[in-house]
């Protein structure tokens, strides 16, 4: 497949210079870049070659793909997405079977060492038959394709952390990309699913600067995952004042008070929902009245009930506490008795 420059491609699709700059501005702002860098971003994007991208879906629900393709019908993000030379994506591409696999092999050969690999879904490490593509098991396919990749984007919480397939009891032995591929740079774009602009933003960043963005300890781009939902949540003032909704239909909930007590994971979840929002910036879960369930964090499915407050500690039961009281009392009484006895012995001595 040919790979003209991105700028040309966009213009051929009728994108005006103005819209393009607007996109650059938004993306740069999202990435936390200074406005001074804007011309550079724009120039770099225009000149960028449409990179070859191979997308491998493994144990996934297609939510991530839905997120990026459906949510933003005709926006620039989706155009950018189209702008990349998506050489293999078996959910989206027309070709199937042998033809599709051949296309992948061709793209790999032509761009060996330079293509970007996007993975969504987790990789089963149990029975090889759990998940296969064209008769090939996920693990070996990943290892094969990763071999020629410049970098890997683990898209969505499944690819990034194991996600729902990896949740307890994890019947397929599902793991994250990073558990299997050790010798390639991996960008985790977590979320279940991730926010579309976050995906395109990361791609943009990669295209613009030709290098990986700065990552946090969990391999996520700091520019999008540097703050918690709670840090930027518009309900935060209620939290500070201790005004909490106690149920989903009480007065507090109607007043839009903080959802902490209803299990909101905002304080421990790093994602951009509170600022970027969903559905073209329409809203995000907390705005819709439901707490964050922490989908962008590892193991979010296994952290207790979604409606248990975050501060939950397992304090044990009143019975265990009662036992502690009993033991403490017994020891206290015994040590006092012992001391009295020593006293008596000393007196007799």
């Amino acid at each position: 497949m040919s790979s003209p420059l991105l700028g040309e491609f966009l213009r051929s699709r009728g994108v005006t210079r103005r819209d393009f700059l607007q996109f650059c501005t938004t993306t740069a702002a999202l990435m936390g870049l200074s406005p001074a860098l804007l011309p550079r971003v724009a120039a770099a994007l225009e000149q960028a070659r449409r990179p070859s991208v191979i997308w491998l879906p493994f144990q996934e629900c297609t939510g991530c793909t839905e997120s990026i393709t459906r949510a933003h019908g005709s926006t620039l993000e989706s155009l950018i997405f189209q702008g990349i030379s998506l050489d293999y994506q078996h959910t989206l591409q027309a070709a199937a079977g042998e033809a599709a696999e051949r296309a992948r092999e061709t793209a790999m050969q032509e761009n060996w060492g330079r293509y970007l690999l996007i993975v969504d879904g987790s990789i089963p490490t149990g029975n090889k038959g759990f998940s296969t593509v064209a008769g090939r098991d996920n693990l070996s396919l990943l290892q094969h394709v990763a071999g020629g990749a410049a970098a890997i984007v683990a898209l969505g919480s499944c690819a990034a952390f194991g996600g729902i397939p990896g949740a307890n009891p994890n019947p397929t032995g599902a793991v994250a990309v990073s558990a299997v591929v050790k010798d390639k740079p991996i960008i985790n774009v977590s979320g279940c699913p991730p926010i579309p602009v976050v995906i395109t933003g990361v791609l943009t960043q990669y295209l613009t600067f030709g290098k990986l963005p700065e990552l946090d300890a969990l391999g996520r781009p700091r520019s999008f995952y540097g703050q918690t939902i709670h840090d930027r949540c518009y309900r935060r003032p209620f939290y500070e004042r201790g005004q909490f909704a106690d149920s989903f239909d009480d007065e507090g909930a109607r007043q839009g008070w903080c959802l902490y007590k209803l299990g909101c994971r905002g304080p421990t979840t790093h994602n951009a929902c509170a600022t970027v929002k969903w559905n073209d910036g329409t809203s995000f879960p907390i705005e819709a009245g439901h707490g964050c369930i922490g989908c962008a964090e590892p193991g979010f499915w296994d952290k207790g009930g979604f409606y248990q407050p975050l501060s939950t500690g397992q304090w044990g039961s009143a019975r265990t506490l009662g036992m502690a009281v009993g033991v403490g009392t017994a020891l206290g009484v015994a040590s006092a008795a012992l001391a009295r006895k020593r006293q008596k012995d000393a007196e007799d001595a």
Binding site: G332, S335, A336, L338, A339, R342, Q343
Partner: peptide, 8 residues
């Protein structure tokens, strides 16, 4: 050492 509750 000799007499307090934690003497032993």
């Amino acid at each position: 050492r000799e007499y307090g509750p934690f003497a032993f």
